[in-house]
Nucleic acid binder design. Structure first.
Length: 362
DNA sequence: AACGCGTGGTA
DNA sequence: TTACCAAGCGT
């Protein structure tokens, strides 16, 4: 039998049984889709919020955040009018905090420019902060049933396998190629169910490890299954190892129950989050560096006690080794960045500082 | 284009 | 334990 060349870029779909694939996928999705909070309505705002939360984040992690967020901010107007601190607090612990800031910024634009209606034009919607190619397609297809591709990690994994695409899925052109494939596959289908079906198949059957090919609805037409290549796909370049940073943090209490805290810059790592005063410094210099920072920045001139407690926090791209220092000062210093603990608890802290809080202030 | 950006789950 | 990952986006 002649060897077919599956990975010719121009026409991977030329000999693919589109109709069979679509029917199998849609039938399977109708029967096996999960009941998820954001699938209970077609409200574009609710779909949008869920898609932002789900970026690089597991469904089980998102669920409680989503429920609570929709209670606090049930409409675009409610989110637009909220205080930024309130929004950050609702996002506390979910990670990638710029998502929250961008979402509120975008929702404010929807309220101010589009009368509170999420735009139905994909290009207009994609111009909003935090809305990239995937989120554009997901919201436009799920909420408005537009034939837009929504290519996320799940979809790339499914297509890489079914169509035997061996390009690195970390490359932008690979995603664009897959978007073109979806434009053909989705044509004439119910777009919401088709895109969600593709994603759901990746989440439940066509998983990264131990995929359930034996019960897969499209096994018959899966080229990777045919070639016994399922476990080798998708191809993804390794990311380089994380850098380590040694940090020194100061938990400083006043005798009347206040703590010294600071807010991180609005951009970059843990953007806009609150924390205990912290510096990066080599172990030998950390106490002195921290004391100097406190004196220069907050006019707090103290000798810190080394608690000899250290903790490690792993981010996606770096590792913090945090040494904790402590001091108690008279109550007369309560101003500026000093805040009563009960008030400080209403602010959003990253998980690593929540750990420090629990260790030092209970 | 490649890198920065969180956190918790899993093998 | 280490490594990889989970519904990406901004710069």
């Amino acid at each position: 039998m002649m060897q077919r060349s599956y990975d010719t870029k121009e026409d991977v779909l030329a000999t693919f049984p589109n109709q069979y694939f679509r029917e199998q996928l849609l039938q399977w999705y109708e029967a096996h889709q999960r009941h998820l909070p954001w699938r209970e309505s077609k409200d574009p705002y609710r779909i949008w919020v869920s898609e932002i939360m789900l970026q690089q984040t597991r469904v089980d992690t998102v669920k409680p955040y989503y429920q609570q967020f929709m209670e606090k901010f049930p409409t675009p107007e409610a989110l637009a009018e909220a205080h930024e601190d309130q929004v950050m607090k609702a996002w506390e612990g979910l990670g990638y905090y710029s998502r929250a800031r961008n979402l509120q910024s975008a929702v404010r634009e929807v309220v101010n420019t589009y009368g509170g209606e999420v735009p139905q034009d994909p290009e207009e919607f994609a111009s909003l902060k935090g809305v990239g190619p995937y989120t554009k397609g997901a919201v436009m297809s799920i909420a408005y049933d537009l034939e837009e591709p929504a290519v996320d990690g799940n979809v790339m994994r499914v297509l890489a396998r079914v169509l035997l695409l061996t390009d690195d899925i970390g490359k932008q052109r690979t995603r664009k190629h897959m978007e073109n494939c979806v434009r053909i596959l989705i044509s004439g289908t119910p777009p919401s169910d088709f895109n969600q079906g593709l994603i759901e198949l990746g989440a439940l059957i066509c998983t990264p490890k131990n995929p359930s090919c034996d019960i897969c609805p499209v096994q018959e037409v899966c080229r990777a299954y045919d070639q016994q290549m399922v476990e080798q796909l998708p191809v993804k370049a390794k990311k380089q190892s994380q850098k380590q940073q040694t940090m020194a943090v100061a938990v400083i209490e006043s005798e009347d129950g206040a703590v010294l805290i600071e807010q991180r810059p609005k951009q970059g790592l843990l953007a806009g989050m609150w924390q205990f005063p912290m510096v990066e410094a080599p172990p030998a210099l950390r106490q002195q560096s921290l004391q100097q920072y406190l004196k220069e920045t907050y006019q707090v001139d103290v000798t810190l006690e080394d608690t000899e407690q250290s903790l490690e926090h792993v981010f996606s791209h770096l590792i913090w080794k945090v040494r904790v220092f402590h001091a108690i000062v008279p109550s007369s210093m309560n101003r500026g960045n000093w805040m009563q603990k009960t008030e400080a608890e209403k602010l959003a802290f990253p998980v690593v500082h929540q750990k420090i809080w629990r260790q030092q202030l209970r």
